[in-house]
Amino acid sequence: MDTPAIAPAYRYGLKAIAPSDKAKIKCRHPKRLKGSVCVDEALQGVKPVDPRWDYAIGYGHTTNSEQIIWAEVHPAASGDNLKEVRGKLDWLIEWLRTEAQPMNYDPRRIVWVATGSSSFSANDPKLRALRDQGLEFVGGRLEF
């Protein structure tokens, strides 16, 4: 989380996750948790109209296995939601590329956690296209 714009928002464990999203993000090995940042909130002041990504979670058992899990908690009820998440993914990649270079090379997972009911089955070709871009769709719960 070595990026000035979000560093002040760093919290231990999963404390940066909004209460409404807490039930959707579960860590099976809490001792391996490093910390978390609500990117959306941290950048709200400087990028108020950007389609900001929700969370970055630092996780790893050893230095070698450390990774950042980029999690977006977002509805999956329609094709519009798909476009929104696609827009957020593009934003995240661009932000990592231009403003968060220290985090641009970290081992990572980029994950969409669905809220509400989903209108995409797990084998939906549209989701497959997003996965091909590096985005995981984990349904209603992220467990790691």
Partner: peptide, 9 residues
């Protein structure tokens, strides 16, 4: 699909 996504990114 998710493994492919992880490998890609």
């Amino acid at each position: 699909g998710n493994l492919v996504a992880q490998a890609v990114t």
